[in-house]
Design a protein around this nucleic acid. Structure first.
Length: 563
DNA sequence: ATCCATAGCGCC
DNA sequence: AGGGCGCTATGGAT
Protein backbone atom coordinates (compact mmCIF):
# COMPACT_ATOMS: atom_id res chain seq x y z
CA UNK A 1 0.00 0.00 0.00
CA UNK A 2 1.32 3.40 -0.95
CA UNK A 3 0.14 6.68 0.42
CA UNK A 4 -0.45 9.58 -1.89
CA UNK A 5 -2.06 12.97 -1.52
CA UNK A 6 -5.73 12.56 -0.87
CA UNK A 7 -5.79 8.97 -1.99
CA UNK A 8 -4.12 5.66 -1.48
CA UNK A 9 -2.76 3.19 -3.95
CA UNK A 10 -3.27 -0.41 -3.03
CA UNK A 11 -1.40 -3.08 -4.92
CA UNK A 12 -1.74 -6.80 -4.76
CA UNK A 13 1.56 -8.60 -4.90
CA UNK A 14 2.25 -12.02 -6.29
CA UNK A 15 4.32 -14.50 -4.34
CA UNK A 16 7.50 -13.19 -5.95
CA UNK A 17 6.49 -9.62 -5.12
CA UNK A 18 5.45 -8.50 -8.57
CA UNK A 19 2.57 -6.08 -8.69
CA UNK A 20 -0.49 -8.04 -9.61
CA UNK A 21 -3.03 -5.24 -9.68
CA UNK A 22 -3.36 -1.64 -8.49
CA UNK A 23 -6.36 0.15 -7.09
CA UNK A 24 -6.53 3.81 -6.21
CA UNK A 25 -8.99 4.79 -3.53
CA UNK A 26 -9.74 7.86 -1.48
CA UNK A 27 -9.03 7.81 2.23
CA UNK A 28 -12.72 7.60 2.97
CA UNK A 29 -13.13 4.50 0.83
CA UNK A 30 -10.01 2.79 2.12
CA UNK A 31 -11.57 1.10 5.17
CA UNK A 32 -14.23 -0.57 3.05
CA UNK A 33 -11.65 -1.74 0.55
CA UNK A 34 -9.37 -3.13 3.26
CA UNK A 35 -12.29 -4.85 4.94
CA UNK A 36 -13.36 -6.45 1.68
CA UNK A 37 -9.88 -7.76 0.82
CA UNK A 38 -8.86 -8.74 4.35
CA UNK A 39 -8.44 -12.47 4.71
CA UNK A 40 -6.38 -14.96 6.62
CA UNK A 41 -3.70 -14.83 3.95
CA UNK A 42 -3.47 -11.04 3.65
CA UNK A 43 -0.41 -9.24 4.85
CA UNK A 44 -0.75 -5.51 4.37
CA UNK A 45 2.50 -3.79 3.48
CA UNK A 46 2.61 -0.28 4.84
CA UNK A 47 5.30 2.34 5.01
CA UNK A 48 4.17 3.14 8.52
CA UNK A 49 1.35 1.69 10.58
CA UNK A 50 0.89 5.05 12.29
CA UNK A 51 -0.20 6.65 9.03
CA UNK A 52 -2.83 4.14 8.05
CA UNK A 53 -4.10 2.04 10.89
CA UNK A 54 -5.65 4.68 13.17
CA UNK A 55 -7.77 5.71 10.21
CA UNK A 56 -8.93 2.15 9.64
CA UNK A 57 -9.60 1.58 13.33
CA UNK A 58 -11.78 4.64 13.64
CA UNK A 59 -13.76 3.29 10.70
CA UNK A 60 -14.16 0.00 12.56
CA UNK A 61 -11.75 -2.03 10.43
CA UNK A 62 -9.06 -4.28 11.84
CA UNK A 63 -6.45 -6.28 9.99
CA UNK A 64 -4.74 -9.48 11.00
CA UNK A 65 -1.25 -9.04 9.67
CA UNK A 66 0.97 -6.37 8.23
CA UNK A 67 4.51 -5.41 7.47
CA UNK A 68 5.63 -2.04 8.78
CA UNK A 69 8.45 -1.07 6.45
CA UNK A 70 9.74 1.71 8.68
CA UNK A 71 10.21 -0.52 11.73
CA UNK A 72 11.50 -3.47 9.70
CA UNK A 73 13.97 -1.29 7.89
CA UNK A 74 15.43 -0.11 11.16
CA UNK A 75 15.97 -3.68 12.31
CA UNK A 76 17.49 -4.90 9.04
CA UNK A 77 19.73 -1.88 8.59
CA UNK A 78 21.34 -2.43 11.98
CA UNK A 79 21.39 -6.19 12.27
CA UNK A 80 24.65 -8.09 12.28
CA UNK A 81 22.72 -11.06 10.90
CA UNK A 82 22.11 -9.10 7.71
CA UNK A 83 24.96 -8.50 5.33
CA UNK A 84 22.85 -7.65 2.34
CA UNK A 85 23.03 -3.88 1.84
CA UNK A 86 19.69 -2.24 2.31
CA UNK A 87 20.20 0.17 -0.56
CA UNK A 88 21.32 3.70 -1.20
CA UNK A 89 18.02 5.32 -0.35
CA UNK A 90 18.43 4.17 3.23
CA UNK A 91 17.84 7.63 4.58
CA UNK A 92 14.32 7.77 3.18
CA UNK A 93 13.34 5.00 5.55
CA UNK A 94 15.30 6.30 8.48
CA UNK A 95 13.01 9.13 9.39
CA UNK A 96 12.94 10.58 12.87
CA UNK A 97 9.76 10.29 14.84
CA UNK A 98 7.48 13.26 14.35
CA UNK A 99 7.22 15.59 17.33
CA UNK A 100 4.48 14.75 19.77
CA UNK A 101 1.23 16.39 18.78
CA UNK A 102 0.24 19.40 20.81
CA UNK A 103 -3.37 18.57 21.22
CA UNK A 104 -5.01 15.98 23.32
CA UNK A 105 -5.04 12.57 21.67
CA UNK A 106 -8.13 12.10 19.57
CA UNK A 107 -10.02 9.02 18.67
CA UNK A 108 -10.31 10.38 15.18
CA UNK A 109 -6.65 10.71 14.27
CA UNK A 110 -6.95 11.61 10.62
CA UNK A 111 -4.05 10.63 8.42
CA UNK A 112 -2.74 14.17 8.13
CA UNK A 113 0.89 13.22 8.54
CA UNK A 114 0.79 10.36 6.09
CA UNK A 115 4.12 9.71 4.47
CA UNK A 116 4.05 10.38 0.78
CA UNK A 117 5.65 7.46 -0.96
CA UNK A 118 5.18 6.07 -4.38
CA UNK A 119 3.86 2.60 -4.81
CA UNK A 120 7.04 1.64 -6.62
CA UNK A 121 9.12 2.81 -3.69
CA UNK A 122 7.13 0.72 -1.26
CA UNK A 123 7.22 -2.38 -3.42
CA UNK A 124 10.95 -2.12 -4.00
CA UNK A 125 11.68 -1.52 -0.33
CA UNK A 126 9.57 -4.52 0.58
CA UNK A 127 11.46 -6.62 -1.94
CA UNK A 128 14.81 -5.40 -0.58
CA UNK A 129 13.72 -6.31 2.92
CA UNK A 130 12.59 -9.78 1.89
CA UNK A 131 15.89 -10.38 0.13
CA UNK A 132 17.87 -9.06 3.04
CA UNK A 133 16.04 -11.42 5.37
CA UNK A 134 16.50 -14.38 3.04
CA UNK A 135 20.21 -13.71 2.66
CA UNK A 136 20.79 -13.20 6.37
CA UNK A 137 22.68 -15.63 8.56
CA UNK A 138 19.41 -16.46 10.39
CA UNK A 139 16.51 -16.01 7.95
CA UNK A 140 13.90 -17.66 10.18
CA UNK A 141 14.79 -15.57 13.19
CA UNK A 142 14.85 -12.33 11.22
CA UNK A 143 11.52 -13.10 9.59
CA UNK A 144 10.01 -13.87 12.96
CA UNK A 145 11.35 -10.62 14.35
CA UNK A 146 9.97 -8.58 11.45
CA UNK A 147 6.57 -10.22 11.81
CA UNK A 148 6.52 -9.74 15.57
CA UNK A 149 7.63 -6.13 15.30
CA UNK A 150 4.88 -5.40 12.79
CA UNK A 151 2.28 -7.18 14.89
CA UNK A 152 3.42 -5.03 17.79
CA UNK A 153 2.80 -1.91 15.73
CA UNK A 154 -0.78 -3.08 15.08
CA UNK A 155 -1.29 -3.86 18.75
CA UNK A 156 0.06 -0.49 19.85
CA UNK A 157 -2.36 1.29 17.53
CA UNK A 158 -5.26 -0.87 18.69
CA UNK A 159 -4.46 -0.34 22.36
CA UNK A 160 -4.23 3.40 21.91
CA UNK A 161 -7.51 3.40 20.02
CA UNK A 162 -9.41 1.19 22.45
CA UNK A 163 -7.76 2.58 25.54
CA UNK A 164 -7.37 1.19 29.03
CA UNK A 165 -10.59 1.16 31.07
CA UNK A 166 -10.17 3.98 33.57
CA UNK A 167 -12.49 5.10 36.33
CA UNK A 168 -12.24 8.85 36.68
CA UNK A 169 -14.41 8.52 39.76
CA UNK A 170 -12.05 6.12 41.53
CA UNK A 171 -9.02 8.14 40.48
CA UNK A 172 -10.59 11.39 41.71
CA UNK A 173 -11.51 9.78 45.00
CA UNK A 174 -7.95 8.54 45.47
CA UNK A 175 -6.49 11.94 44.68
CA UNK A 176 -8.85 13.68 47.07
CA UNK A 177 -8.14 11.13 49.79
CA UNK A 178 -4.38 11.48 49.50
CA UNK A 179 -4.00 15.13 48.57
CA UNK A 180 -7.07 16.72 50.04
CA UNK A 181 -9.75 18.60 48.11
CA UNK A 182 -8.67 20.05 44.83
CA UNK A 183 -7.93 23.76 45.03
CA UNK A 184 -8.37 26.51 42.48
CA UNK A 185 -5.96 26.40 39.56
CA UNK A 186 -2.53 27.55 40.62
CA UNK A 187 -3.06 26.61 44.24
CA UNK A 188 -2.05 23.44 46.03
CA UNK A 189 -4.58 20.91 47.28
CA UNK A 190 -5.40 21.37 50.95
CA UNK A 191 -3.22 18.66 52.51
CA UNK A 192 -0.29 19.64 50.35
CA UNK A 193 -0.65 23.27 51.34
CA UNK A 194 -0.61 22.37 55.03
CA UNK A 195 2.57 20.35 54.54
CA UNK A 196 4.26 23.30 52.84
CA UNK A 197 3.35 25.52 55.80
CA UNK A 198 4.79 22.93 58.16
CA UNK A 199 8.00 22.71 56.14
CA UNK A 200 8.35 26.49 56.04
CA UNK A 201 7.91 26.69 59.78
CA UNK A 202 10.43 23.95 60.52
CA UNK A 203 12.95 25.64 58.24
CA UNK A 204 12.22 29.09 59.64
CA UNK A 205 11.67 30.30 56.12
CA UNK A 206 8.15 31.60 55.35
CA UNK A 207 8.56 31.67 51.56
CA UNK A 208 10.59 28.59 50.72
CA UNK A 209 9.33 26.67 47.71
CA UNK A 210 10.04 22.96 48.32
CA UNK A 211 9.92 22.33 44.57
CA UNK A 212 13.04 24.39 44.03
CA UNK A 213 15.93 22.05 44.70
CA UNK A 214 18.67 24.70 45.05
CA UNK A 215 16.56 26.82 47.40
CA UNK A 216 15.53 23.81 49.41
CA UNK A 217 19.11 22.60 49.72
CA UNK A 218 20.21 26.01 50.98
CA UNK A 219 17.35 26.14 53.46
CA UNK A 220 18.17 22.65 54.76
CA UNK A 221 21.77 23.63 55.28
CA UNK A 222 20.56 26.79 57.01
CA UNK A 223 19.09 24.65 59.79
CA UNK A 224 22.18 22.47 60.04
CA UNK A 225 21.25 19.60 57.75
CA UNK A 226 24.37 18.85 55.75
CA UNK A 227 22.92 16.90 52.82
CA UNK A 228 24.41 16.95 49.32
CA UNK A 229 21.09 16.62 47.55
CA UNK A 230 17.37 16.68 48.25
CA UNK A 231 16.95 13.08 47.20
CA UNK A 232 14.59 10.92 49.21
CA UNK A 233 17.24 8.33 50.05
CA UNK A 234 19.58 10.93 51.49
CA UNK A 235 16.91 12.79 53.41
CA UNK A 236 15.77 9.55 55.02
CA UNK A 237 19.13 9.30 56.81
CA UNK A 238 18.60 12.61 58.58
CA UNK A 239 17.01 13.17 62.00
CA UNK A 240 15.18 16.48 61.91
CA UNK A 241 11.54 17.56 62.36
CA UNK A 242 11.41 18.92 58.80
CA UNK A 243 12.24 15.58 57.19
CA UNK A 244 8.92 13.80 57.78
CA UNK A 245 6.69 16.52 56.28
CA UNK A 246 9.19 17.10 53.48
CA UNK A 247 9.27 13.46 52.42
CA UNK A 248 5.50 13.29 52.61
CA UNK A 249 5.26 16.45 50.52
CA UNK A 250 7.59 15.07 47.85
CA UNK A 251 5.63 11.87 47.56
CA UNK A 252 2.30 13.62 47.38
CA UNK A 253 3.50 16.28 44.99
CA UNK A 254 4.81 13.56 42.72
CA UNK A 255 1.35 12.03 42.53
CA UNK A 256 -0.22 15.43 41.89
CA UNK A 257 2.15 16.48 39.12
CA UNK A 258 2.63 13.14 37.36
CA UNK A 259 -0.80 11.52 37.68
CA UNK A 260 -3.09 14.14 39.16
CA UNK A 261 -6.18 15.89 37.86
CA UNK A 262 -4.30 17.57 35.01
CA UNK A 263 -3.06 14.20 33.80
CA UNK A 264 -6.58 12.81 33.97
CA UNK A 265 -7.97 15.69 31.95
CA UNK A 266 -5.27 15.26 29.32
CA UNK A 267 -5.29 11.50 28.85
CA UNK A 268 -8.57 10.03 30.04
CA UNK A 269 -11.70 10.41 27.91
CA UNK A 270 -14.94 8.56 28.11
CA UNK A 271 -13.69 6.11 30.72
CA UNK A 272 -10.58 5.13 28.76
CA UNK A 273 -6.91 6.07 29.17
CA UNK A 274 -5.44 6.58 25.70
CA UNK A 275 -1.65 6.74 25.91
CA UNK A 276 0.75 6.95 22.97
CA UNK A 277 2.79 3.78 22.72
CA UNK A 278 5.98 3.85 20.67
CA UNK A 279 6.97 0.35 19.51
CA UNK A 280 10.76 -0.06 19.46
CA UNK A 281 11.00 3.36 21.08
CA UNK A 282 13.86 2.00 23.18
CA UNK A 283 17.15 0.90 21.55
CA UNK A 284 16.73 -2.60 22.93
CA UNK A 285 13.40 -2.95 21.12
CA UNK A 286 11.29 -2.33 24.15
CA UNK A 287 8.34 -0.06 23.70
CA UNK A 288 8.36 3.48 24.94
CA UNK A 289 5.58 5.97 25.41
CA UNK A 290 5.32 9.53 24.29
CA UNK A 291 2.72 11.23 26.39
CA UNK A 292 0.58 9.71 29.07
CA UNK A 293 3.40 7.82 30.72
CA UNK A 294 1.62 4.51 30.32
CA UNK A 295 4.75 2.52 31.14
CA UNK A 296 5.24 4.33 34.44
CA UNK A 297 1.74 3.97 35.80
CA UNK A 298 2.38 4.14 39.57
CA UNK A 299 1.10 1.25 41.63
CA UNK A 300 -0.55 3.85 43.83
CA UNK A 301 -3.26 4.59 41.25
CA UNK A 302 -3.66 1.25 39.50
CA UNK A 303 -6.95 0.61 41.23
CA UNK A 304 -8.41 3.28 38.91
CA UNK A 305 -8.07 0.74 36.11
CA UNK A 306 -11.51 -0.80 36.48
CA UNK A 307 -13.22 -3.38 34.28
CA UNK A 308 -16.57 -2.46 32.76
CA UNK A 309 -19.67 -3.97 34.40
CA UNK A 310 -19.84 -7.64 33.47
CA UNK A 311 -16.17 -7.61 32.46
CA UNK A 312 -12.96 -8.71 34.10
CA UNK A 313 -9.33 -7.71 33.80
CA UNK A 314 -7.02 -10.63 33.20
CA UNK A 315 -3.64 -9.39 34.38
CA UNK A 316 -0.73 -11.58 33.28
CA UNK A 317 2.91 -11.23 34.19
CA UNK A 318 5.80 -13.21 32.73
CA UNK A 319 7.59 -14.13 35.94
CA UNK A 320 11.39 -13.73 36.01
CA UNK A 321 11.35 -13.24 32.27
CA UNK A 322 14.89 -12.04 31.73
CA UNK A 323 16.68 -14.90 33.49
CA UNK A 324 14.50 -17.39 31.63
CA UNK A 325 15.37 -15.66 28.37
CA UNK A 326 19.05 -15.90 29.25
CA UNK A 327 18.68 -19.61 29.96
CA UNK A 328 17.07 -20.16 26.57
CA UNK A 329 19.42 -18.09 24.45
CA UNK A 330 22.55 -19.47 26.10
CA UNK A 331 21.25 -23.05 25.83
CA UNK A 332 22.19 -23.51 29.47
CA UNK A 333 20.72 -26.89 30.38
CA UNK A 334 21.19 -26.44 34.11
CA UNK A 335 19.40 -23.14 34.13
CA UNK A 336 16.67 -24.41 31.81
CA UNK A 337 16.04 -27.27 34.22
CA UNK A 338 15.71 -24.76 37.03
CA UNK A 339 13.20 -22.79 34.95
CA UNK A 340 11.01 -25.87 34.65
CA UNK A 341 10.93 -26.25 38.41
CA UNK A 342 9.29 -22.87 38.82
CA UNK A 343 11.05 -20.19 40.83
CA UNK A 344 14.50 -19.61 39.34
CA UNK A 345 15.82 -17.93 42.47
CA UNK A 346 14.54 -20.61 44.83
CA UNK A 347 16.15 -23.23 42.58
CA UNK A 348 19.57 -21.77 43.36
CA UNK A 349 18.82 -22.20 47.05
CA UNK A 350 17.51 -25.75 46.61
CA UNK A 351 20.65 -26.69 44.69
CA UNK A 352 22.66 -25.29 47.60
CA UNK A 353 24.39 -22.80 45.37
CA UNK A 354 23.09 -19.79 47.27
CA UNK A 355 22.06 -19.61 50.90
CA UNK A 356 18.96 -17.43 50.53
CA UNK A 357 16.52 -16.55 47.81
CA UNK A 358 17.35 -12.88 48.29
CA UNK A 359 21.02 -13.59 47.58
CA UNK A 360 20.10 -15.64 44.54
CA UNK A 361 18.05 -12.78 43.17
CA UNK A 362 20.77 -10.22 43.77
CA UNK A 363 23.31 -12.45 42.06
CA UNK A 364 21.08 -13.08 39.06
CA UNK A 365 20.22 -9.44 38.59
CA UNK A 366 23.89 -8.65 39.02
CA UNK A 367 24.70 -10.94 36.11
CA UNK A 368 22.03 -9.34 33.94
CA UNK A 369 22.85 -5.74 34.81
CA UNK A 370 26.57 -5.98 35.37
CA UNK A 371 27.08 -5.53 39.07
CA UNK A 372 30.76 -5.03 39.68
CA UNK A 373 30.75 -5.10 43.45
CA UNK A 374 28.44 -5.30 46.41
CA UNK A 375 26.22 -8.29 46.97
CA UNK A 376 25.85 -9.14 43.30
CA UNK A 377 29.58 -9.06 42.64
CA UNK A 378 30.47 -11.19 45.65
CA UNK A 379 28.11 -13.97 44.67
CA UNK A 380 29.06 -14.02 41.01
CA UNK A 381 31.65 -16.82 41.20
CA UNK A 382 29.00 -19.20 42.54
CA UNK A 383 26.58 -18.29 39.80
CA UNK A 384 29.29 -18.78 37.18
CA UNK A 385 30.00 -22.26 38.52
CA UNK A 386 26.30 -23.15 38.50
CA UNK A 387 25.43 -21.70 35.11
CA UNK A 388 28.60 -21.37 33.06
CA UNK A 389 26.89 -21.05 29.71
CA UNK A 390 24.35 -18.46 30.81
CA UNK A 391 26.84 -16.30 32.64
CA UNK A 392 29.31 -16.78 29.81
CA UNK A 393 26.87 -15.30 27.33
CA UNK A 394 26.38 -12.07 29.24
CA UNK A 395 30.09 -11.86 30.04
CA UNK A 396 30.91 -12.17 26.34
CA UNK A 397 28.39 -9.46 25.52
CA UNK A 398 30.00 -7.20 28.13
CA UNK A 399 33.54 -7.82 26.84
CA UNK A 400 32.43 -7.08 23.30
CA UNK A 401 30.83 -3.81 24.36
CA UNK A 402 33.92 -2.81 26.31
CA UNK A 403 35.90 -3.14 23.10
CA UNK A 404 33.41 -0.95 21.23
CA UNK A 405 31.73 -3.86 19.47
CA UNK A 406 28.12 -4.52 18.57
CA UNK A 407 25.95 -7.25 20.10
CA UNK A 408 22.78 -8.81 18.74
CA UNK A 409 19.65 -10.25 20.30
CA UNK A 410 18.49 -13.79 19.62
CA UNK A 411 16.18 -12.77 16.78
CA UNK A 412 18.54 -10.22 15.30
CA UNK A 413 18.25 -6.72 16.70
CA UNK A 414 21.71 -5.24 17.06
CA UNK A 415 22.96 -2.70 19.53
CA UNK A 416 24.06 0.71 18.28
CA UNK A 417 27.82 1.20 18.05
CA UNK A 418 29.29 3.47 20.70
CA UNK A 419 29.28 7.16 19.76
CA UNK A 420 32.32 8.86 18.23
CA UNK A 421 33.20 10.59 21.50
CA UNK A 422 33.48 7.15 23.11
CA UNK A 423 36.00 5.98 20.50
CA UNK A 424 37.84 9.27 20.76
CA UNK A 425 38.21 8.85 24.51
CA UNK A 426 39.51 5.30 24.11
CA UNK A 427 42.03 6.43 21.46
CA UNK A 428 43.23 9.29 23.61
CA UNK A 429 43.71 7.03 26.61
CA UNK A 430 45.82 4.60 24.60
CA UNK A 431 48.34 7.28 23.61
CA UNK A 432 51.63 7.30 25.55
CA UNK A 433 51.05 10.87 26.72
CA UNK A 434 47.60 10.10 28.13
CA UNK A 435 47.08 11.31 31.66
CA UNK A 436 46.02 8.97 34.43
CA UNK A 437 42.68 10.77 34.56
CA UNK A 438 42.10 10.18 30.85
CA UNK A 439 42.92 6.51 31.22
CA UNK A 440 40.65 6.16 34.18
CA UNK A 441 37.78 7.93 32.39
CA UNK A 442 38.25 5.72 29.32
CA UNK A 443 38.19 2.55 31.42
CA UNK A 444 35.05 3.68 33.13
CA UNK A 445 33.35 4.49 29.81
CA UNK A 446 34.39 1.11 28.45
CA UNK A 447 32.88 -0.65 31.44
CA UNK A 448 29.72 1.46 31.13
CA UNK A 449 29.32 0.44 27.50
CA UNK A 450 29.96 -3.17 28.45
CA UNK A 451 27.13 -3.04 30.98
CA UNK A 452 24.91 -1.62 28.27
CA UNK A 453 25.70 -4.39 25.76
CA UNK A 454 25.49 -7.03 28.50
CA UNK A 455 21.97 -5.97 29.34
CA UNK A 456 21.06 -5.29 25.72
CA UNK A 457 21.14 -8.92 24.63
CA UNK A 458 18.87 -10.05 27.46
CA UNK A 459 16.52 -7.08 27.63
CA UNK A 460 16.26 -7.02 23.82
CA UNK A 461 15.56 -10.75 23.54
CA UNK A 462 13.00 -10.49 26.34
CA UNK A 463 11.33 -7.71 24.36
CA UNK A 464 11.21 -10.03 21.35
CA UNK A 465 9.64 -12.78 23.41
CA UNK A 466 7.05 -10.29 24.69
CA UNK A 467 6.20 -9.27 21.12
CA UNK A 468 5.77 -12.90 20.09
CA UNK A 469 3.65 -13.51 23.18
CA UNK A 470 1.37 -10.60 22.39
CA UNK A 471 1.13 -11.40 18.69
CA UNK A 472 0.10 -14.98 19.52
CA UNK A 473 -2.32 -13.78 22.15
CA UNK A 474 -3.90 -11.26 19.80
CA UNK A 475 -4.54 -14.04 17.32
CA UNK A 476 -6.03 -16.34 19.96
CA UNK A 477 -8.25 -13.59 21.36
CA UNK A 478 -9.60 -12.79 17.90
CA UNK A 479 -10.66 -16.42 17.60
CA UNK A 480 -12.60 -16.36 20.87
CA UNK A 481 -16.36 -16.05 20.50
CA UNK A 482 -18.00 -12.76 21.24
CA UNK A 483 -19.88 -12.93 24.52
CA UNK A 484 -22.63 -10.72 23.16
CA UNK A 485 -25.55 -12.90 22.23
CA UNK A 486 -27.65 -10.11 20.80
CA UNK A 487 -25.89 -9.20 17.57
CA UNK A 488 -27.90 -6.06 16.98
CA UNK A 489 -26.96 -4.80 20.42
CA UNK A 490 -23.31 -5.32 19.53
CA UNK A 491 -23.77 -3.12 16.48
CA UNK A 492 -25.50 -0.36 18.34
CA UNK A 493 -23.06 -0.38 21.21
CA UNK A 494 -20.05 0.31 19.01
CA UNK A 495 -19.26 3.54 20.82
CA UNK A 496 -15.80 4.94 21.41
CA UNK A 497 -15.85 3.62 24.94
CA UNK A 498 -16.63 0.10 23.81
CA UNK A 499 -14.93 -0.35 20.47
CA UNK A 500 -15.76 -4.03 20.25
CA UNK A 501 -18.48 -4.87 22.65
CA UNK A 502 -18.56 -8.41 23.95
CA UNK A 503 -14.99 -9.24 23.00
CA UNK A 504 -11.82 -9.94 24.90
CA UNK A 505 -9.21 -7.33 24.06
CA UNK A 506 -5.62 -6.52 24.85
CA UNK A 507 -5.74 -3.20 26.66
CA UNK A 508 -2.32 -2.81 28.24
CA UNK A 509 1.28 -3.88 27.83
CA UNK A 510 4.20 -3.23 30.16
CA UNK A 511 7.40 -4.98 29.04
CA UNK A 512 6.58 -8.36 30.55
CA UNK A 513 2.96 -7.88 31.52
CA UNK A 514 -0.33 -7.68 29.64
CA UNK A 515 -3.90 -6.89 30.59
CA UNK A 516 -6.88 -8.31 28.71
CA UNK A 517 -10.27 -6.72 29.25
CA UNK A 518 -12.82 -9.45 28.74
CA UNK A 519 -16.44 -10.34 29.31
CA UNK A 520 -16.41 -12.13 32.65
CA UNK A 521 -17.61 -15.42 31.21
CA UNK A 522 -14.63 -15.58 28.83
CA UNK A 523 -12.02 -14.96 31.55
CA UNK A 524 -11.12 -18.63 31.83
CA UNK A 525 -10.56 -18.96 28.11
CA UNK A 526 -8.52 -15.77 28.08
CA UNK A 527 -6.33 -17.14 30.84
CA UNK A 528 -5.75 -20.28 28.83
CA UNK A 529 -4.99 -18.23 25.72
CA UNK A 530 -2.41 -16.19 27.61
CA UNK A 531 -0.58 -19.33 28.78
CA UNK A 532 -0.80 -20.93 25.38
CA UNK A 533 0.56 -17.78 23.74
CA UNK A 534 3.50 -17.74 26.15
CA UNK A 535 4.39 -21.36 25.51
CA UNK A 536 4.10 -20.80 21.78
CA UNK A 537 6.35 -17.74 21.95
CA UNK A 538 9.02 -19.88 23.59
CA UNK A 539 8.73 -22.55 20.90
CA UNK A 540 8.74 -20.01 18.08
CA UNK A 541 11.92 -18.42 19.30
CA UNK A 542 13.88 -21.26 20.84
CA UNK A 543 12.46 -24.35 19.17
CA UNK A 544 12.69 -27.53 21.17
CA UNK A 545 15.01 -26.12 23.83
CA UNK A 546 12.70 -26.36 26.79
CA UNK A 547 12.67 -23.35 29.00
CA UNK A 548 9.52 -22.78 30.96
CA UNK A 549 8.19 -19.25 30.58
CA UNK A 550 6.07 -19.03 33.70
CA UNK A 551 3.10 -16.70 33.57
CA UNK A 552 1.36 -15.44 36.68
CA UNK A 553 -2.25 -14.52 36.10
CA UNK A 554 -4.82 -12.70 38.19
CA UNK A 555 -8.45 -12.26 37.18
CA UNK A 556 -9.60 -9.09 38.87
CA UNK A 557 -12.07 -6.24 38.75
CA UNK A 558 -9.38 -3.62 39.05
CA UNK A 559 -5.66 -3.53 38.39
CA UNK A 560 -4.92 -2.63 42.00
CA UNK A 561 -6.00 -6.13 43.01
CA UNK A 562 -3.32 -7.77 40.89
CA UNK A 563 0.08 -8.53 42.46
C1' DA B 1 8.91 33.24 24.81
C1' DT B 2 11.30 28.99 23.94
C1' DC B 3 14.81 25.48 24.26
C1' DC B 4 17.69 22.40 26.95
C1' DA B 5 19.91 20.03 30.80
C1' DT B 6 19.36 18.40 35.37
C1' DA B 7 17.31 16.50 39.55
C1' DG B 8 14.22 13.48 41.23
C1' DC B 9 11.20 9.67 41.11
C1' DG B 10 7.84 6.57 38.83
C1' DC B 11 7.97 1.90 36.01
C1' DC B 12 10.23 -2.75 34.08
C1' DA C 1 28.53 1.03 42.64
C1' DG C 2 23.66 -2.06 37.78
C1' DG C 3 20.72 -2.00 32.52
C1' DG C 4 16.56 0.47 29.97
C1' DC C 5 13.07 4.27 29.97
C1' DG C 6 9.24 8.99 30.62
C1' DC C 7 7.57 12.90 32.88
C1' DT C 8 7.56 17.24 35.69
C1' DA C 9 9.44 21.29 37.63
C1' DT C 10 13.19 24.17 37.77
C1' DG C 11 16.57 27.35 36.21
C1' DG C 12 19.91 28.93 33.07
C1' DA C 13 20.71 30.04 28.25
C1' DT C 14 19.12 31.87 23.96
Amino acid sequence: MALLDGSVEVAELTADLDIHGVTTVGWDDLPALVASRESASSRWVWADVRDVYPHLLSAGVRVQRCCDLRLCHAILAGSTYVEWAMGADDARWRQPDPPASEDVPSLLDLPGGATDRSLAEIVSEHRRQQQAAAASTHPERIRLLLAAESAGALIAAEMKFGGLPWSEQVHDRQLTEVLGPRSLPGGRPAKLERLVEDIREQLGNPTINPDSQPDLLRALRGVGIGVQSTRQGELEQVQHPVIAPLLEYKKMNRLLTANGWAWMAAWVRGGRFHPDYVPAGVVTGRWATRGGGALQLPKQIRSAVVADPGYKLVVADAAQLEPRILAAMSRDEQMARASRRGDLYQALVDEEIMDTRAHAKVAMLGALYGATSGGGGQLMPRLIRAYPKATGLVEDAARRGERGGVVTTWLGRSSPPPPDVWHAAQRRASQPEATAAEQQAARRQARDWGRFTRNFVVQGTAAEWALCWMANLRKLLAALPSATTDESAADIDQSAAEPRAGRAELVYFLHDEVIVHTPARLAGEVEQAIRQAAAEAGRLMFGSFEVNFAVEIAVVDDYGQAK
